[in-house]
Structures are given as C-alpha cells and as structure tokens.
Amino acid sequence: MATFRDLACEEIIKGIEKVNPDYFLSIPCSTVGPVIEHFEKSDKVISFPVSREEDGVGIAAGISLGGKLPIMLIQDTGIGNSILAITTFVQAYHVPMLILVTRRGGFGEINSAVNLFSEPLPRILDDAGVKTFKLDYRLPLKEWSTAITQGAQYARDTHRPIIVMFNIKGGAEQ
C-alpha cells in the first residue's frame, strides 16, 4: 500500500509540474528523494544539485532576475544555511522565488540534534518576516499541488520569497 510519504511526493511532483519551472535546484532530504529523482530524469526542467543552500538561493535569485523561473527544494535545516541570503538579498531586492522546504524535527524524528533548529524555525521565519505556508496532515493531500502553484503565483504577485513547508512525517503539529 502506498504510504503517506509516497502520496505526498506524488502531489509535490504534480505541483511542481503545474508551475512548470525552468530550473529545479535541490539538496536532498530523505523524505523527498522520489521528487528529486523524478526531476533528475525530466526533460522539461533543468534540474541540478547545489552544495549549500545559501549558494542555491543566490543562483535561484539570479535566474529569477534574468526572467526565468526557478524552484528550490531543501530541508528545513537548509534555511539555517541560507537565511541571510533570503532576507538581505531575496527579500530586500524583491526577487520572486518559491522555496519548498521539508520539515524535520517533531514526532517521527529520530535525529537527536536537528530538533534544536527545526522546532524554533517557524518562529525564526516569522520574526524575519519571511512568509511561510505550512502543509501537514490537516490539509488533504490532494490540495498540496494547488498550494505549490499558489505559492509560486504568490511569490510573483507579491515580489518576494515564499516558503511552502511540508510535514511529510505526519503526526501532530510541531
């Protein structure tokens, strides 16, 4: 039987394909491996890995300034590696950008350190004024692809970075 994770990955793929970006940048998180593998094989979008999220945010911002559409997929700890670039460049210069983020920490997390960043992250982003939408088990999976397309549109319409965060592990709100 398909797991929540399998179905979530299918929805994320569907959402990204509906947005139809020119470039797909990523650093893998174990939960969304299938999404990255899917776009590695795709001939509709140029997919590539980055070595650090900060560099990825800079590259995606350049792509966006150049009139093309990027989407970046990272795990939430990667926001820690890139928050200065997100705030003092992407946000300050009004560069539209959709960043998809998978949630770590919380129920189901087995890592004994990431919770120390993942748990306070929503508050950090709120304090920094980086608009974030959080999807978890309470939003029916069939709505997730729509949330991704709306996130991309909202980034364009409001001229800023928009983060759409997924809790794929399910369980209670962190």
Partner: peptide, 9 residues
C-alpha cells in the same frame, strides 16, 4: 552565486 543564475538565464 547570483551571477551564475543570471548567466544561466
């Protein structure tokens, strides 16, 4: 990094 993105676009 930004220049890489611009160059690609």
């Amino acid at each position: 990094s930004v220049a890489i993105g611009v160059s690609m676009a």
